[in-house]
Every structure is written in C-alpha cells, then in structure tokens.
C-alpha cells in the first residue's frame, strides 16, 4: 500500500491547492501534541425524547493520532459519531466540541464536512439515480467551494478517483452505478474509504466499519485507512470488537460506557478488553 498518500498529495498540488485545514502543517514548530479534536463535558439527548445518551463525555484526539473507542452496545458510541458530524436528531444540552480550536456545534453538517470532519457510516445510505462519479465530484467541489477554492478540473478528478479506486479494488463499472444502490456490505464500506481518500479530511471517524465485513474485506478496508494515516490527519475508530484494531493499530484506546469515557490506555487495553469483556465497565461505571 505504498503511494496512497503521495498520490492524493500530488493530485492536490496539481490542482494548485493549499488546503486551508493543513496550513498548520507548514508551521515549523509543529508538535505531536497539537490537539485536533477536543470534546469537553458533552451532554446529549435524543431530540423530542427525554433519553440522555451522552453524560458529560470528555475526549481529546491529537494531530495524527489514531484513537479507538470501544464499548458495549448502547454505550453511546454511534451517537457520539453522529453528534460530531452534525446529525439533527440530537440535542446538545451541555459541553463543546472543538476542531482545531473552532466550535463545531455552531456549524451545519455540510460546514463541518468542509472543515475536515468525515464520518464513515456504519450503514452507508443509497443515493438512487446519482452515479457514484457524479456524487463524488459534486461532494468534492462543494467542499472546495465552501473553503473558497476553485472547482476541480475534470481530468484531475478522474485521475484521482481511478487511482484511489484501484487501490481499494473498486471496479470502474461500480463508479458509474448509482452510489451504494445494490452494493454489497463490503462494497459500501470500501466506497466510504474511497470517499475518505478523495475528500482528504483531517478528522476521520469510522463508525463500526468492521461490522458486516468478512476477513478479506476487512483487510482491504484497513489497508485503505492505514494508507491515509498522516501527521495532519486523526482518526476516531469506533468498534465493538478488537479484531479491527489488529489491522488498524491505534495509538490510544478509550473505553466508553453509559455515555462517558471511563478508561483510557494504550493499544494493550483493547487486548485486555477482549479477554475480560465489558462487564466490569457496566452500570457501575
């Protein structure tokens, strides 16, 4: 999997773009400890319901860090990913989410995307009647427009898509079909990673990306993600099982329970959880 990041980089420089989100990269004084995402005391409930899902969650993800969030079903993992991405079904009662120091909660979902947040969905949606290629181009151009950049030139776009698709084993005819319509579970997940590669986000959230994948598909997807690892790009990998973390090795592992981060450790924490289960982080946590 060499060349994934360089290709994207070349493609961006071809298009004469200096990505606003990556300006920090050019600072000579760049340090590992710069914060990408900071969540403070986040309290969230489902809109129109009394059910509170996140209960004062704190989380920090540094530049270039791959952080895993593990936890039992119903601990609020998916809710966290939706709230960061800006889904409207939730109401934030307290706390804040900062991306590169900017208040994310004040932005619409599309503005958050343009600011660099990418969510790989657990269940990617089907977009009928819109060829995958058309969708990709519209999305890339919409983000560029939001950042005040010029539209992509078609040849540059096609080159970038073909190159990224090849690496993920996505057939050309799939790119002509309506996005995700009739795609298998594995194809949909690969398509998510393709979009992640093309949109070049700074904060990638993977929501249960391993669910429904067989071991070969899991490997392809994980390799796609690993190729995108960079010092100016962070990952939040949400998963229930350890096995994804064999392929995408995290820097940190957070255990989530009852809408809060209850334990933080290194990658060995995931292995511990695999043995002992989540029972000790249950209701009492």
């Amino acid at each position: 999997m060499v060349g994934f990041v360089p290709t994207i980089h070349v493609f961006l420089s071809n298009a004469q773009v200096v990505d606003a989100r990556h300006r920090a990269e050019h600072d000579a004084a760049e340090h590992w400890t710069r914060t990408m995402l900071e969540i403070r005391n986040l309290v969230v409930k489902i809109a129109d319901e009394d059910k509170q899902i996140l209960n004062g969650l704190n989380l920090t993800v540094n530049d270039g860090e791959v952080a895993a969030i593990m936890g039992p079903n119903g601990s609020g993992k998916s809710t966290l990913s939706y709230v960061i991405a800006g889904k409207e079904d939730y109401e934030v009662l307290d706390g804040e989410i900062l991306l590169n120091g900017e208040n994310v909660l004040e932005m619409e979902a599309d503005q958050r995307a343009a600011a660099g947040i990418f969510l790989a969905f657990q269940y990617p949606l089907e977009i009928p009647g819109v060829a995958t290629m058309t969708f990709l181009k519209a999305a890339m151009n919409a983000q560029r427009k939001a950042r005040g950049e010029d539209e992509l030139l078609t040849p540059d776009f096609i080159k970038a898509v073909n190159s990224a698709a090849d690496k993920l084993g996505i057939a050309k005819d799939m790119l002509r079909r309506p996005l995700n319509v009739g795609f298998s579970g594995g194809e949909k997940k690969r398509m998510e990673i393709l979009q992640m590669a093309l949109l070049s986000p700074s904060m990638c959230i993977l929501d249960e990306t391993d669910s429904g994948l067989d071991i070969d598909a899991l490997r392809i997807v994980a390799e796609g993600v690993n190729a995108l690892r960079a010092k100016n790009r962070s990952f939040l990998v949400i998963t229930h099982y350890q096995r994804l973390l064999d392929h995408i090795v995290p820097d940190t592992v957070h255990v989530m329970s009852n809408g809060r981060i209850v334990k933080t450790g290194g990658k060995e924490l995931a292995l511990e959880l695999e043995k002992s289960g989540y029972a000790s982080y249950g209701e009492a946590a």
Binding site: F121, I127, F135, Q143
Partner: peptide
C-alpha cells in the same frame, strides 16, 4: 440520505438537485 449527503459537504439544495436531476 440528506444527512449522508451533507456529511460529504453537499448543501441540502445541492443534494436534492443532484438526486432530482439524475432522476
């Protein structure tokens, strides 16, 4: 579906226009 499109950076109008035009 709209949230999915928005998450990719499309505005609501762009998303609907895209889907309707294809249709």
């Amino acid at each position: 579906q709209l949230f999915y499109c928005l998450q990719r950076g499309l505005s609501e109008e762009e998303a609907v226009a895209l889907i309707v035009n294809g249709f």
